[in-house]
Amino acid sequence: MQGVASRLLVPSTAKKGDVIEVKTIIMHPMDSGYSKDQNGKTIPREIIETFSAAYNGKQVFKMQLQPSISSNPFVSFFMKAEQSGTLELTWVDQDGSVYKNQAQITVT
């Protein structure tokens, strides 16, 4: 899909050993494949299938999304801050599109 925007919020700085919350939301219809449009025609399934987060290249979080998840899915999870680095989020659409967002975290 084109024009898929996402938002990501993490603290930009953290103390070593702190547990920090990662919050993110992405604009996506997440059509389940069961709903119909105004003319009674089935809207085909169009969902994001996987969401994962990597910190300095190492996977820290992964989830599989299913058709029952709402539009514009919001995800939050916790991770432990051990060293400074880049958090990279990746969503993979069923049509093969890949959406990314990233943020820097400085650990002191």
Binding site: A5, R7, K23, T24, I25, I26, M27, S71, F74
Partner: peptide
């Protein structure tokens, strides 16, 4: 109340 969980902000960004 949370500007990240509020999906309206996806449109605000746009």
């Amino acid at each position: 109340d949370d500007d990240i969980s509020n999906p309206g902000f996806l449109w605000v960004d746009k």
